[in-house]
Every structure is written in structure tokens, then in C-alpha cells.
Simulated scan of single mutants.
Amino acid sequence: MPLRLPDKLPAIDLLKKENIFVMDESRAHNQEIRPLKIVILNLMPLKITTETDLIRLLSNTPLQLEINFMKLRSHTPKNTPVEHMMMFYKDFDILKEQKWDGMIVTGAPVETMPFEDVAYWGEIKAIFDWARTHVTSTLYICWAAQAGLYHFYDIPKYPLQKKMFGIFPQHTLVAALPIFRGFDDVFAMPHSRHTEVRRDDIARDSRLTVIAESEESGVSIVMARNGREFFVTGHMEYAPDTLDKEYRRDIGKRDDVEMPKNYYQNDNPDNGPVVTWRAHANLFFSNWINYYVYQETPYDISKIE
């Protein structure tokens, strides 16, 4: 089944060139199967890039998905055209009256700030609380994972001396979980962050389970509420060239950023990246949709509790 996307969303043409089957709203009206309703709160500065990255992964499912984008009322993006935001994004106040099968909350460029100092922290907390009663399963990514763990479970974040930057091997700790169906014992995950959460803090809360981690990059996936919440500290959604763009953007401008590890061929930026995480990224998102969104959501979406 294809994804059901807003008409004229830039990601549609980009993904069609990759032979990914997507469907705009005009064509979708002829389909009688209820699509799963997925809402994405996109906090990343480059909205169109993140939209495309996430849609690419969500497309790898036989289920029909209806994708909607949420924006904050209390924040105006600086790196995305106003016209794009007006055409494809809706305020939380508009979308909050609906129930949703799944939700994704992305990272945000406010990682080194205390949560309470983030200008839109109040609205973020309201959205997080709302998701617990209006969404079947929510996927929190990078900063959003740290923010969700802090808001719901009082898990602090800690600054790193050097940016955790590169592709790091992760170990599945609860291999029998459906989220890891088809996974190998070790899988790769991109990381790009200046802060971390620590296993010892998480282990003290019986409501949380660390389900994947790395000896080098630390905790990578935490599960709560039987899969109604996943907190992913890395970026499985990243495109092959994303870390390269970040590295070239920051080199010479920051003293806490080194060349991304385990990323370039022969550790030479001139050789380009080696993609080692794409297969498991597709599996992770497909498993989330199939086992934690589709199989857990009621057919009557209004009955989500």
C-alpha cells in the first residue's frame, strides 16, 4: 500500500524518483480502506529534508498511511519557507481534537539548553501529555526522546565533552520484542548529539526498559507502556549524506566536533559515506507501524484511550 500525503508535498516527487509508491490526497479519496493516521511533529530546522527522510522509511509498509504534519503555535521556523508551513502544517490546537494511530516527534536544535529554557517547552509538554490519551503509539527521536524521558520520568540529560557523532553498533537487549523482528543481534545507528541519558538513571524506574544500547554511544532505544512510547536517542531516519553535511557545516566552527566515526570509506571524507544502517532502519519503522500502531489501534479510531 502507498502512503497518503498532502497534494504537492515536495517529498512526493523526490520519493517517486526513488521508485517509492506514494499517493496524494486526490487519488487517495478513491480508496475505501481506512488508512492509519500518523501525525509528525517536525521540530528539525530543515523541515523538507526531515519530511523526506521519515516518509522514505514509513513507505516501507504494506499498510496505507495518512501522514499529517503538526507545528507549534509558539515557534516560527527560520529555515523553511512560510508558504511551505502554511500549506502542509497545522497547529496543535487544530489537530488535538482528533485521535491518531501513531505519532513521531523529531529532534530539535535546542539540545544543549535546559528543557525549561526552551521557548516552546510549555507547548511541548502539553503535546506530550495529549499524546498519551490521543495516540496509540508515539516515537520520540533524539532531543524529543530526551525531552519525553525528562517530562514523564524525570530522567536527566548530561553534556558530553565531545559530540557523539557517527555510526555506532547497537546491541538488542530484548530480541523477542516485535520491534526487533528480523533484526540481527547487532545493528548500526547514526548518532549526532552533544548530550546523553544514562542507563543508571533509567534502570531506577521500573516503568522504563532499555531495549538497545551501545558500548560506545550508550542507551539507544528505551521502551515504555508496552510499546506505546519509544525513545530513540539516535537518528535511524538519516539519509546517507546527512552526517556528511553536518560535519562540513561544523568543521572549523566548533571545537567539540570530530569526523563522524565508522562513516566514511577508509575514514576519508573524500571517499564518501558507507551506508550500514538503512536495512535495520526500514525494519524498525515497519515493525513499529505493524506491531505497535496497526495491531494495537482500534478500527474505530475515536476509541483510542
Results as ranks from 00 to 15, higher is better:
145 A>S: 14
161 Q>G: 10
203 A>L: 11
75 H>V: 08
181 R>K: 12
178 P>V: 00
48 I>C: 03
153 Y>S: 12
195 T>P: 06
279 A>V: 15
80 T>I: 02
96 K>I: 05
16 K>P: 00
298 P>N: 04
282 N>E: 15
148 G>D: 11
182 G>D: 05
75 H>W: 09
150 Y>A: 15
110 V>M: 10
145 A>D: 05
279 A>S: 07
268 N>S: 03
151 H>A: 10
107 G>E: 03
133 T>D: 09
176 A>Q: 06
138 T>W: 10
36 L>W: 08
62 P>L: 07
225 R>E: 09
25 E>C: 02
213 E>S: 12
297 T>P: 12
2 P>M: 12
198 R>L: 04
280 H>V: 04
113 M>P: 05
189 M>Y: 10
195 T>N: 12
145 A>W: 06
74 S>M: 10
143 W>H: 08
227 G>C: 06
89 Y>E: 06
231 F>P: 01
26 S>N: 11
275 V>C: 13
64 Q>C: 09
126 A>K: 14
178 P>W: 00
40 I>V: 07
168 F>V: 00
170 Q>D: 13
65 L>A: 03
1 M>A: 15
240 P>V: 15
75 H>N: 07
51 E>H: 10
166 G>T: 00
291 Y>C: 01
94 I>E: 13
24 D>R: 04
219 V>T: 03
83 E>A: 08
2 P>I: 13
83 E>N: 06
244 D>N: 09
11 A>Q: 05
185 D>G: 04
265 Q>A: 15
282 N>C: 04
300 D>A: 02
215 E>H: 01
199 R>V: 00
27 R>Q: 09
120 Y>G: 03
71 K>M: 14
201 D>G: 04
82 V>P: 01
248 R>N: 13
271 N>L: 13
235 H>L: 10
290 N>P: 01
124 I>L: 15
9 L>Y: 00
232 V>E: 01
58 L>W: 05
66 E>V: 10
186 V>W: 02
45 P>A: 03
166 G>Q: 02
